[in-house]
Write a protein that binds this DNA or RNA. Structure first.
Lengths: 217, 217
DNA sequence: AACATTATGTCAGCTGCTGACATTCGACAA
DNA sequence: TTGTCGAATGTCAGCAGCTGACATAATGTT
């Protein structure tokens, strides 16, 4: 349109925003280190803040509460999942689209340096910390609502009257969660292979139909 | 057998235990009143305690935290569900057993004086209070684990190797939760009828297969 | 250089929650 | 009835999470 800006204008990212991003990342990093080392409950917010040479008050300007800093990277992954899901071709049915999106997320995680093992440790920390587990499940619910909205849009449905999107989103979330649990519970069988995680999810989905069908004999 | 006790021996419930039960019930009652009136966040533990003329410290001897007193009645219902599920005839398949158990729970709730509307209000309170929602979801997960154990026992399976019990328990919990949401969201359609809730759950289960199958056109 | 904007620090304070110790209350026997 | 033991409760001190209010410093703009 009008307003011919000087072409190269990816983002007017000022020094300010860069600095903010840096301290934020530093806080997440320090928090994870301390949580994994001393445990979530035995790590105080003041410790995290002073590790980054920042006041406690600033910490709470970046994160609404102590849980949020622990789940920050997970929140980013969930956001990425939504992006991938929105970008899936319209020809796929809902289930195919979600499987594709979760595959893309794991591929992206795989590319990111050492985030594979880190993700595993994070899962264990969350599962073994009641407070974190509760917060994580709440986020998962919100994620399900958003996923349901996307699915309803793709299929041209009204989420208020047709509950199938919500239902499928919830079931999908459940399958992913149980896969994470199984993955973390049996490290020897799957570790060092992100494909293992995907295979687990696929297997669980294949078991879903028979499990619902009737007797298991 | 031996030891002919004097027949009428329901429970040697001393005055002590009765008093404990009374103050506990009073705390739950006062808490619910205050939560529904002023909101969860704006109600302090001291207020609840002083309402029952008890020190704050005693409150925390009855309940581990503020959330627990809000979810107490729900926890009892969940316990009842487990009991009913354990008592279901062995001939039923897992899904039939769970449907039967949830029906029995609602029938029992129906018999309890005015607990119907109270349950509705409680659901709304939980769903609209992030902290409570998180705590509730955590409890739901624990419930799922226990349900999976029961199902595995019924079918003679090892929950560690066969994940179908866990999967079905999770899906069932999801369906019940979504039914609660739909029930609370559209009061006019279902209110004053516990059968409405059961019908909703049945309908959602019937939608589950088609929703998983493929396209929704 | 002067100004507006925004991030940060400091401080005071509330609320949830816990340990330690004293006190009171119910159970049970002499 | 009385006395004794254990359990329930009260009191107090204190820590940690979290917030509002205000002052200060850093950054961006003219």
């Amino acid at each position: 349109m009008a307003m011919p800006t000087t072409a190269a204008d990816p983002q007017p990212v000022g020094l300010r925003e860069r600095k903010k991003r840096r301290t934020r990342d530093a806080l997440v990093d320090a928090a994870h280190r301390l949580f994994l080392c001393h445990g979530y409950g035995r790590t105080t917010v003041d410790e995290i803040a002073s590790e980054v040479e920042v006041s406690q008050r600033t910490f709470f300007r970046y994160f609404a509460n102590k849980e949020e800093v622990a789940l920050a990277v997970l929140a980013e992954a969930e956001e990425a999942f939504l992006e991938f899901l929105r970008a899936r071709p319209a020809g796929e049915n809902p289930l195919e689209a979600m499987r594709g999106a979760v595959r893309e997320v794991w591929q992206a995680v795989d590319r990111g340096q050492d985030s594979g093992p880190a993700a595993l440790e994070l899962f264990e920390l969350i599962e073994s910390t009641p407070t974190l587990l509760a917060a994580h499940l709440r986020h998962a619910i919100q994620q399900e609502v958003e996923v349901a909205r996307i699915l309803a849009d793709r299929e041209g449905l009204d989420p208020a009257v047709d509950l199938r999107p919500r239902l499928l989103a919830a079931v999908f979330g459940t399958v992913v969660r149980i896969s994470h649990l199984a993955y973390a519970a049996d490290p020897d069988a799957h570790r060092h292979s992100m494909d293992g995680m995907l295979a687990l999810i696929e297997r669980h989905f294949d078991q879903l139909g028979p499990a619902l069908a009737g007797s298991w004999r």
